[in-house]
């Protein structure tokens, strides 16, 4: 029996879709059978980030309305064994699906897959209700912005009242320099407010932008720090106990080298 995990945030643009793509790929790299569902009907993105846009024939709405079988709508990612995508419809809106249909769909996919990752749309309306309805657990993505944390708090409250207890959070786009200068909320500040378990801290990484545009999840890039973090998060989801990478005190390569040679930091 597979597990259904919804990836949500409340606020838009914090990295739900990127997180879904990377965690899904990360789990597939761990030899799991994974399906990603894009529930952002009308504003689909996950197919683009995964680089599978040109292979869409059927979508989520086709499946719930019975125009096709689930198997037909699933797009197999040829690069990674065991990774599938169920894309959202682009010509419809959130009301084209209801929570009951999502529960039924998740039940069906659960039989065949180890993980069903649901990419939730921004907001707290119908799209959000649909996305969380079939989920067993939730991952809340936030950034170190006051507004994103505020929305994450709201979302955690809604998840808790929908019986999705103990959501975990991923703090995305942390800029270590800014945190060190005191210009950005620290991880501790955020945990203090949200009072939930931390699943991972993803540093701001230009490689993410590149990989997202290319449709190749950063998790596969062994040189990317963000990719490393996503691999760790995937392992944590699988129950492995991996310490959280302290990106806040992560020094630049140059600084490390200087320290190694005992050169005083003159910069």
């Amino acid at each position: 029996m597979g597990e259904v995990i919804v990836i949500t945030s409340g606020k838009g643009g914090v990295g739900k879709t990127t997180t879904t793509a990377n965690l899904g790929t990360g789990l597939a790299l761990e030899n799991k059978q994974v399906v990603l569902i894009d529930t952002d009907i009308g504003l689909r993105n996950l197919d683009v980030v995964m680089g599978l846009e040109n292979r869409i024939v059927y979508d989520l709405v086709d499946v719930v309305e019975g125009h096709c079988r689930v198997k037909q709508a699933l797009i197999k990612d040829r690069r990674y064994e065991g990774l599938y995508l169920l894309p959202a419809a682009q010509t419809r809106d959130k009301n084209a699906v209801n929570p009951k249909q999502m529960v039924k769909l998740c039940q069906e996919l659960r039989e065949e897959f180890d993980f069903i990752l649901i990419d939730c749309p921004a907001g707290i309306e119908q799209g959000f209700r649909n996305a969380i309805s079939g989920a067993d657990r939730a991952i809340v993505v936030t950034t170190p912005d006051v507004s994103a944390v505020r929305d994450a708090d709201r979302i955690i409250g809604l998840l808790e009242s929908s019986e999705l207890k103990n959501p975990k959070i991923i703090i995305n786009r942390v800029k270590p320099d800014m945190v060190r200068r005191g210009d950005m909320m620290t991880i501790d500040d955020i945990i203090d407010i949200l009072a939930v378990d931390l699943l991972g801290v993803v540093p701001d990484d230009e490689k993410i932008v590149i990989s997202t545009n290319r449709g190749e999840p950063a998790v596969t890039d062994s040189k990317s720090l963000a990719g490393q973090v996503y691999r760790n998060i995937a392992k944590r989801i699988l129950g492995e106990n991996i310490p959280i990478l302290d990106v806040q005190s992560e020094e630049g390569f140059l600084h490390k080298l200087k320290r190694l040679f005992g050169i005083k930091n003159a910069m």
Partner: peptide, 12 residues
């Protein structure tokens, strides 16, 4: 007196 245990979150 009402005692509420837990975090009162945004929107609650």
């Amino acid at each position: 007196t009402k005692i509420f245990c837990g975090t009162v979150r945004s929107g609650q």
